[in-house]
Simulated scan of single mutants.
Amino acid sequence: MKIRTLLAATLFTLALILAVIGVAGIYGIHSTNDALASASENVPTVMAVLAQQEDIARARLQLDRVTAGQAVASATTLASATALISESDRAWTSYTAFPAGDDEKRLAADVAHARDNLLNKGIEPLMSALKSSDTQSSSALAYVTLPKLYATFSDATAKLSQFQAEDSARLVQEGIAREQKTMLLTISVTLLGVLCAVASWVILRNAISKPLAAATEHFGAIEAGNLTSQIVIARDDELGGLLRSLAKMQGSLRDTVMTIRTGVDHVADAADEIASGNGDLSKRTEEQAASLRGDSGEHGRADRDGKTDGG
């Protein structure tokens, strides 16, 4: 694999991991926000259900006090009970405006039915009996009819409130589960990124650092005059091309040195031959000079002898 391809693949892998980490983080934030939003949407519905029950309970308490003779059945007392019933109606209307699932709608329908029975068959007849001072009817309604109707209403409301609490808890747990999944995913991808970074370092070290160190070592050997070190080429990338060029340069330098050395040897041999020839020539020259000197001496003596004889 080419080094530029390896670098591109490494950078692309790291960029992809960073992108996955970013997407995982965004997904986790979005999922957690959705879960929190769903849980927060349950708060107004829970408050509305509790408010409508509390207002009815307060209205019933006032009517029970009047029935028991603890309060006067004045217009103010009955008007206060009526106002509480109106507040309960508004709270219930606000609850029904919120979206709900099928299970919650079924429980809400039970509450609505029990609530209507409580109002239409218990509280309103009791208020009418109190207004008309019908003690017998008000007592029967307050102590017999109303408790049964209120118990049914209270049970239905408790079931609805319990469902809302469980649904809110479920939403919170879903949010926690999503957060944990996102955290696990983020940690996993981060660890994968670290492993990829380490693997990339090892791969790039083997692909670049080691070959460069080997090439530097060969350059140092050549600089020191060692042209016999073996250059091993086991790759086909840019650094492999560099090592091949280095091997060729080493071979060329070795051939050049051998050529120069051979030439020097030839010159030395020729010089030796010239020196030997010069020696022989000098010897022969000396011998000839000596021979000439000898001949000259003999001729000189002969001449002297001749002159002596003539005299």
Rank of each mutant, 00 (worst) to 15 (best):
E166R: 12
E166T: 13
D167G: 02
D167Y: 06
D167R: 08
D167W: 01
D167E: 13
D167A: 09
S168Q: 14
S168E: 13
S168D: 11
S168T: 12
S168A: 11
S168C: 06
A169G: 15
R170S: 15
R170G: 13
R170I: 08
R170W: 11
L171W: 01
V172W: 02
V172D: 07
V172Y: 01
V172A: 12
Q173G: 03
Q173P: 00
Q173L: 02
Q173V: 06
Q173N: 09
Q173C: 01
Q173F: 02
Q173A: 13
Q173S: 12
E174S: 04
E174T: 02
E174D: 08
G175W: 01
G175C: 05
G175N: 05
G175A: 06
G175T: 01
I176P: 00
I176S: 07
I176C: 00
I176Y: 00
A177P: 00
A177K: 01
A177Q: 03
A177Y: 00
A177G: 02
R178W: 12
R178F: 12
E179C: 05
Q180V: 00
Q180T: 03
K181C: 04
K181I: 06
K181F: 04
K181N: 09
T182D: 11
T182I: 04
T182R: 08
T182V: 06
M183L: 10
M183E: 06
M183C: 00
L185Q: 04
L185F: 07
L185W: 04
T186K: 06
T186A: 09
T186Q: 10
T186R: 11
T186L: 08
I187M: 11
I187C: 05
S188V: 03
S188H: 02
S188K: 04
S188Y: 04
V189D: 11
T190C: 06
T190S: 14
T190H: 10
L191I: 15
L191Y: 13
L191Q: 10
L191V: 15
L192M: 03
L192D: 01
L192A: 08
G193F: 07
G193Q: 10
G193D: 07
V194A: 15
V194H: 12
L195I: 15
L195M: 14
L195W: 11
C196F: 11
C196H: 00
C196T: 11
C196Y: 01
A197D: 10
A197N: 12
A197E: 08
A197F: 11
V198H: 05
V198E: 08
V198Q: 08
A199N: 09
A199T: 10
A199L: 13
S200Q: 07
W201I: 14
W201P: 07
W201Y: 14
V202I: 15
V202W: 09
V202D: 10
I203Y: 09
I203N: 09
I203Q: 11
I203R: 08
I203E: 07
I203M: 15
I203G: 08
I203D: 05
